[in-house]
């Protein structure tokens, strides 16, 4: 079981590396979809084992919700938002891709360093799954910083959320059901609002480059 989780957490981390090295917006959405599917798989395996051992089904339900929301609904919504915006070729990132990837490697090392003294959560050794998922949070954050266009920020936000979810899953075997549901509802609202905002920004500035927002400053 632990072997599967180790493998899956590494895959989730890898997917976030793939995300930061993408150049096209459609590719961001697709990578996010894959990452969400991997997380759904983690939740599925964990939920299955708990359902078999302890006769509790809430993580399985959450797995279904993840598939419905993060794998199908939100990517669909993002594709639609993207479709509303005319296609324009613009350089989307501040630094070039290799440097971004190198910085992300640094972030992984940093999160390893910072978590290394709280390994006692699951035993004496360092919990690599937590390290990996925490790195996903930081990489998601860094992705938000490195992308200029608003869709990049939405994806970054969703990746942070994914990272936090997986961290919670690995460190405590799932949060209380009601908390998870609350987070999902928050997330849907946030993504919908941000989708609307992107369309508005596009109308106003004829670009979804959020640098233009600094014109709003008083």
């Amino acid at each position: 079981m632990e072997f599967f989780f180790d493998l899956l957490s590494v895959l989730v981390l890898l997917s976030s590396f793939v995300l930061v090295s993408n150049k096209k917006i459609t590719a961001y959405i697709k990578t996010f979809q894959i990452q969400s599917a991997l997380i759904a798989l983690i939740a599925g395996i964990m939920g299955w084992s708990i359902a078999v051992n302890e006769d509790k089904y809430d993580i399985l339900i959450i797995c279904v919700i993840i598939i419905a929301l993060k794998v199908i609904f939100i990517p669909h919504l993002l594709y639609k938002t993207y479709g509303n915006i005319e296609y324009r070729v613009e350089k989307d990132f501040f630094m070039n891709i290799p440097i971004i990837v190198l910085i992300c490697c640094g972030l992984v090392v940093f999160s390893y360093f910072s978590v290394s003294n709280i390994g006692s959560l699951t035993g004496f050794h360092i919990n690599h799954q937590v390290v990996n998922s925490l790195s996903v949070v930081l990489i998601g954050f860094f992705f938000m910083i490195s992308r200029k266009k608003a869709i990049g920020q939405i994806i970054g936000y969703l990746v942070i959320e994914n990272g936090i979810f997986v961290t919670a899953m690995f460190s405590t075997n799932g949060m209380p059901f009601i908390v998870d549901i609350g987070i999902f509802i928050d997330m849907i609202t946030a993504v919908m609002i941000m989708g609307i905002m992107v369309t508005r920004i596009n109308k106003k500035f004829e670009s979804i480059n959020i640098d233009k927002l600094s014109k709003l400053k008083g």
Binding site: F94, F110, L138, F141, F142, M144, I145, K148, Q153, I210, D211, L213, S214, K215, L216, K217
Partner: peptide, 16 residues
């Protein structure tokens, strides 16, 4: 500055 990225960098730095 009004730049969203700058604000994100502040939050990120604070987290780190």
């Amino acid at each position: 500055t009004g730049s969203t990225h700058a604000y994100l960098v502040y939050i990120f730095a604070a987290v780190l």
